[in-house]
Design a protein around this nucleic acid. Sequence first.
DNA 1: TAGATTGTTAATCGATTAACAATC
DNA 2: TAGATTGTTAATCGATTAACAATC
Lengths: 210, 210
Amino acid sequence: MKREKISDAVIRRLPVYLRLLSHLKRLGFRTVSSQQLGKELDFNPAQIRKDLAYFGEFGRKGIGYDVDYLIKKIDQILNLDQPVHVVLVGAGKLGQAISHYNVYQKDNMKIIAIFDHTKERIGTNVSGLTIRPIDELQHFITENNIRIGIITVPDYAAQEIADKMVSAGISAILNFAPVVLRTPEHVRVSNADVTAELHSLAYYVFNQGK
Amino acid sequence: MKREKISDAVIRRLPVYLRLLSHLKRLGFRTVSSQQLGKELDFNPAQIRKDLAYFGEFGRKGIGYDVDYLIKKIDQILNLDQPVHVVLVGAGKLGQAISHYNVYQKDNMKIIAIFDHTKERIGTNVSGLTIRPIDELQHFITENNIRIGIITVPDYAAQEIADKMVSAGISAILNFAPVVLRTPEHVRVSNADVTAELHSLAYYVFNQGK
DNA sequence: TAGATTGTTAATCGATTAACAATC
DNA sequence: TAGATTGTTAATCGATTAACAATC
């Protein structure tokens, strides 16, 4: 077990490993090698071993990794071995789609409250959750000790929501609004920018082989 | 103007520049320096200059970049100076949210057809588009020379849709299904994996400062 | 034992940042 | 001219990959 700072790139691969491992488990695999994982994911096996080795010695030489054990370990690393509660702000179509998806997730991460600004939406039901007014956002976050927030409001409203989240003590934001959020150093922001993704794909379409 | 292979990281920043530049244009800026851009985006100014210099000499020493001109140039680089048509498969909540969003986009990229497998959905209207049956997907792609596809079907159906897209000649896919798609080398796949994003955020929440 | 596979160090590769001459 | 800022080379930093001893 090392004690270096672990890079973003490593952390972002862990959920990918986790998903593949769950899949392999369902298929009946008891054990798996970095070679096999690499083949499935198109990753270099050395990279996979190195990624895992940052957190401990999870494998067995000559054998590989025990699927169940590795799932358990990665769950622990990501803090997904305990309930993780999330709030979502912006009950438009995208917010509803994400909430809806969340219902079917069978992991420990759950959206437990949805907030919106629009009077007509407040009180209505989305995926089993009653939409709450933004006024209650900060109180809800502190009261329930929420650490992760999802922003699915329009671009012009995103910074204000982020500010509210931050002041209430949230430490990570998944932002779907196409803006660069200003947040303090200690708050992690991950941007999910569909338009930007599409725009960069357009480059490759007409510049093939580059 | 260089003639190197340009890295993914560079291409993925271009849409970000583009968006900020449009914003600055709306604010009345005529000219902007890499310093200013960097400050807004939290990027190193040298990186911005280098990114742009891969494609040409767009700036003026001592002055900076002409906002209008740079927008035009990045649009050209990304091939967004011409209509780019996109198909979307999977008219569930997420597919609808994305289609809906697309309506308000005022760029040259447009979703022009939506496909779904479910009989009840076919023929109904989503954001001004009539949902078509999957059977028609391949014909539509070839007929209209579509190059980009968006996949918003459930995980188990994603590979099949990708295969159909590829065989019909698509060259880039934005995949929202939480699976690793198998595609030929020449097909670009970009994954938008909300669950994976959230899972990696969970790491930072309880490992702050790392 | 022989074959397989890990964990880890060293080598390589690539991306970011600093520095600065050119020049507006 | 003096100050500002680009484009680009060189230096640095970091991430990926190769190689291999340890060992199941």
